[in-house]
């Protein structure tokens, strides 16, 4: 299965781009209009992909920044309906392939097929659902997603065993997302040693062509630089959310520009 993500990914590879950027944003936080401005700034600055998280009352894998953002958005009556409208606007308003990140309860309660049908319709490239771990049912889940031309990006961590990595590598679709530490989301001053030394083990277990993304803790251009040659995509989350809320969309653009120029240089 190939969609917008695959086309963009192989084009960037062919161009010789050393590392690509996925920028994260939280729908409805601080507001839908700021979301749209931020997406524009991200694309202008050179972000390659957009990860759009839908707010949930109990975001298990998220640290304080993103969790409180979730609660803030819900308090301001952010609904799934508004979420779908935002996704549609973002999908038509810019060119970064979109991955929707959501905790499982949202599509589960809404109806998985109905949910994914909407995402397919508006041209989303894939989903990241962190609380569906890899197990016996993953194959079925990935197949169901691919029926909607959606990649179901699987998540791994530094603690994932080689045996599990091999199994995951066989089933993966789109890219596999590895966390840079065993923990929850949140910007950190430095990247963890266990995060930066896991890639040999992962690459050995995975098929050569499978795209690898990494995130959790990235907060400086040199962090992305350190991942060059190790992963294909760097995912930046909490740091961008902090910037958006504290200094606005333009600051997000400036930060991403500074990363892009450090990659080129």
């Amino acid at each position: 299965m190939k969609n917008k993500f695959d086309i963009k990914f192989s084009a960037a590879k062919a161009e010789g781009k050393k590392i690509q950027l996925m920028a994260h944003m939280l729908a409805g936080y601080p507001s839908v209009s700021v979301n749209k401005e931020t997406a524009w700034a991200m694309e202008q600055a050179g972000a390659d992909y957009l990860e759009l998280q839908l707010p949930f009352s109990d975001p298990l894998a998220d640290g304080p920044v993103i969790m409180r953002g979730n609660h803030h958005a819900l308090k301001k009556n952010f609904s799934l309906e508004k979420g779908f409208r935002l996704i549609e606007d973002l999908a038509s308003g810019q060119n970064m392939p979109i991955f929707v990140m959501s905790y499982y309860n949202l599509p589960f309660v809404f109806g998985l097929e109905k949910f994914m049908g909407i995402l397919e319709q508006v041209g989303v490239s894939g989903v990241i659902i962190p609380d569906i771990p890899f197990d016996d049912e993953s194959e079925e889940y990935i197949q169901r997603m691919s029926a909607f031309k959606l990649h179901a990006a699987l998540v791994i961590s530094p603690g994932t065993s080689s045996k599990r990595l091999k199994a995951i590598g066989k089933k993966a679709s789109g890219f596999v997302y590895t966390t840079l530490r065993t923990g929850i989301t949140g910007a950190k001053q430095t990247l963890s040693h266990e995060g930066l030394t896991q890639f040999k083990k992962i690459r050995r277990a995975f098929p050569k062509k499978l795209a690898l993304a990494a995130g959790f803790g990235i907060s400086r251009p040199e962090h992305v630089k350190a991942l060059e040659g190790k992963v294909d995509i760097a995912v930046i989350g909490s740091k961008l959310i902090l910037l958006t809320v504290e200094r606005g969309p333009l600051a997000v653009g400036e930060f991403i520009s500074s990363i892009v120029s450090s990659i080129v240089s």
Partner: peptide, 22 residues
Amino acid sequence: PKLGIVQGYKSYFIQNADGQVQ
């Protein structure tokens, strides 16, 4: 009873139509 998946398990939860725990 409204079926949901929260805090790592599938069971009944007090939640709204969007699946947000109340």
